[in-house]
Amino acid sequence: MKPRRSQLALLYVLAVVMSLVILAPFAWLVIASISPARDLISAHPHWWPSHPTLSRYHSIFSGQAGGDDVAANFRVAMGNSLVVAAGTTVISLVVGTLGGYAFARLRFRFRRSALFAFLSVYMLPPIALVIPLYLALSNLGMLDTKRGLVLTYCSIVTPFCLWTMSNYFLSLPSELEEAARIDGCNRLQALTRVVLPLAKPGLFATAMFGFLLAWDEFLYSLTFTSTTNAKTIPVAIAEFTGKYSSDFGLIAAGGVLAALPPVVLALASQRFIVSGLTAGSVKS
């Protein structure tokens, strides 16, 4: 039964309203980033800046990093966040995929207990692990380094990847692997040639959420870093707030730039997730 025109019209109206509700905060963030300071602190709100300016973005991308220029230091923090989040995602996804496959397909003692033990690490509040992790990184000489942050973030993201990938592998039919084993593949070949093509949606979704977990993390980055060598975006944005004043426009510009990589990643992953739904099972 086809929906009526009135139902379709109502559906489109609701979709437009929902889109406006979701996009309105981001639109205001963009407007605030190009608004003069007097418009942001004015008693009467300005829905569009009287004199739009890109000076904050210019300060971020052309300033001299390494000193007291927090805008220029934000540019360095963006690079640090990209390196740390990408490294954490790659390592955690590889470990989570192999471990998740083992938990889903192999049968061994304490299998579920071990899986729940990994999950319990992910569920622990970060504040409970700050001191042990700080002492561990200090003994390893990894404080204020990107390697230290990658190692720390892997302790958060890897259990998440392990849990999600093990559940996703359980949803895939094991008969395809058994057929590959009969045709002469070993377990690793069956994983790479049969299971992973079918698991593309889960892989991309897990990678996207793992990247976001590492990209948005604040407490560990604030505690374990002290210079621009390893500070990430959340810490850099927090430094836009001074002791006696705050540059709200600069905070908004930082928020816009910080939101772009996750948005681009989500848009790019959406295409691969949809195409991966039919990949694998129809290939020879």
Rank of each mutant, 00 (worst) to 15 (best):
R4N: 09
S6A: 14
Q7A: 15
L8T: 09
L11Y: 10
M18V: 15
M18C: 13
I22N: 13
A24K: 03
F26P: 02
F26A: 11
A27E: 08
W28M: 11
S33G: 03
D39E: 13
A43V: 15
P45H: 09
W48C: 08
W48N: 12
P49G: 03
S50K: 12
P52Q: 04
T53W: 00
T53V: 04
T53C: 03
S55C: 07
S55L: 08
Y57H: 05
G63N: 05
G63M: 04
Q64P: 01
G66I: 01
G66P: 01
G66D: 03
V76C: 10
G79L: 06
S81P: 03
V90T: 05
V90C: 07
I91C: 08
L93W: 04
V94E: 06
V94P: 02
V95I: 15
T97Q: 05
L98R: 07
G99I: 00
G100D: 04
Y101R: 13
A104D: 11
R105H: 08
R105G: 06
R105F: 02
R105S: 06
L106V: 03
R107F: 06
R109P: 08
R109E: 10
R109Y: 12
F110Q: 12
F110S: 14
R112S: 15
S113Y: 12
A114C: 10
L119Y: 07
L119G: 02
L119I: 04
M123K: 08
P125C: 08
Y134H: 13
G141F: 06
L143E: 05
L143S: 06
L149E: 04
T152Y: 02
T152W: 05
S155Q: 11
V157E: 00
L162T: 02
Y168E: 03
F169S: 02
S174K: 14
S174F: 08
E178D: 07
E178C: 07
A180H: 01
D183H: 09
D183Y: 09
C185N: 12
L188T: 11
A190G: 09
L191F: 10
T192L: 14
V195L: 09
V195Q: 01
L198Y: 02
K200T: 13
G202L: 04
F204T: 09
T206N: 07
T206A: 10
M208W: 04
L213S: 01
A214S: 07
W215D: 01
L222F: 15
T223C: 10
S226G: 12
T228Q: 12
A230L: 04
P234N: 09
V235A: 11
A236S: 14
F240K: 01
S245L: 11
G249I: 02
L250Y: 02
A253R: 00
G255D: 04
G255I: 00
G255C: 04
G255F: 00
V264S: 03
R271N: 13
I273C: 06
T278S: 14
A279R: 06
A279V: 13
